[in-house]
Amino acid sequence: MEAARLSQFEIVAREDFSDVTYLLEVRHPLMAKAARPGQFVIVMAHERGERIPLTIADFDRSRGTITLVVQAVGKTTREMQQSCKVGSTLHAMVGPMGIPSPISGAKKVVCVGGGLGVAPIFPQARGFKEAGTYVIGVLGFRTKSLVFWEDKFRACCNELILCTDDGSAGLKGLVTEGIKRAIAKHRDIDEVVAIGPPVMMKGCAEATRPHKIKTLVSLNPIMVDGTGMCGGCRVKIGSEVKFACVDGPDFDGHLVDFDDLMTRLRRYTQVERAAAERWSANCRMKDLADPAAPAVELLELPDPFDDVKGG
C-alpha cells in the first residue's frame, strides 16, 4: 500500500474527441486492479471543487490507469477541460464505487451507448465478450465527427450498429432504431444494457418492454459522497426508493421512474448555469491575457502490474 500512489491522481493521457468531449487517463494502479464494468468514481478537480460522479469508461490493469470520458457541460467539467493536462493531478478520485454490472451468463446481449454513455458501455461489452457472449453493439452519436472508439467496439462486438442523428455515419436515427433492428434480426436476445442520457435510456426501456427483454440501465444522478450517506442520488425503482450510489448504479430499466430521475437531475440547473456563466466570463478575461490552448499529448507508462492482464 504505497501512500504516494493513493494520494496522487496524475493524468497520464488525454484525448479530445470533440470540442466538448474529452478523455482522461488517470493513474491509480490499485483502483485499476479493483475496477469492474459498470462502476464509477467521484472526482474533485481542485480543493474547492465539487464532487462529481463519472462512470469508469475503461481500466487498464497493466498500465495501472482508470479512463474517464467527460463531457464539458457545467462549470466543473468545463474547468477540467482546461485544467486537466497530462502531468497535472486531480485533487481527489475515489472509487471504484457502486455494485459492478453483473456480466451474466447471457448468450446474446445488446450493449447500447449513446453520447456520453458510449465510453462506459465499453467495459461491459468487453466483459461480455470475454465471457463468451454474442455481443451486439449499438452506438449513438449526433453526427459523424463526434464518433469515437469505433475500432475498440468493433474489436469486442460481434455486430456493431452505428447510429447518427443526421445519418452522416451508419444508420440515421436514434439508438432505439438500432435496438429495433437488432431485435428484428435476432429473436433470441437475452439482455439489453443501455447507458446514456436518461431520455435515451427511457427510450431503450420502452423499445424492449413489448418484447419482454431484460433491460439494465446505468443511472447517474446527482451525488455528494457516493457512499450511501447523503441520499441525494435516490431514485424510484418500481415502488421502492433506492440510492444509485450503493444500490446501483445499474437497475432494471423497466422499473425505473425516468421522469422522476430527470426532474431530480434539474435540481441545481439554475445555480449551475449561473456558476458556468460566471466562470466563462472570468475565463474570457484570462484568455485575453494568456491565449495558450490546452495541449493534447500522450505519455507512455511503465507497467506496474505486468503480470495482471487488463480488463
Binding site: 474547492r48 465539487e50 462549470k75 441520499g231 426508493v241 456558476a275
Partner: peptide, 28 residues
C-alpha cells in the same frame, strides 16, 4: 422525491464539508 426535499446528511455535508455556503467553493 421532489427537488426541495433532501436529507439532513446531504444538507449538512454540502454546507460543512463542501463549504457550499462560501461562494469560493463550487458545491451548490
Amino acid at each position: 422525491s421532489l427537488n426541495g426535499v433532501l436529507s439532513a446528511n446531504e444538507l449538512l455535508t454540502r454546507c460543512n464539508l463542501m463549504r457550499a455556503r462560501d461562494a469560493a467553493f463550487d458545491t451548490p
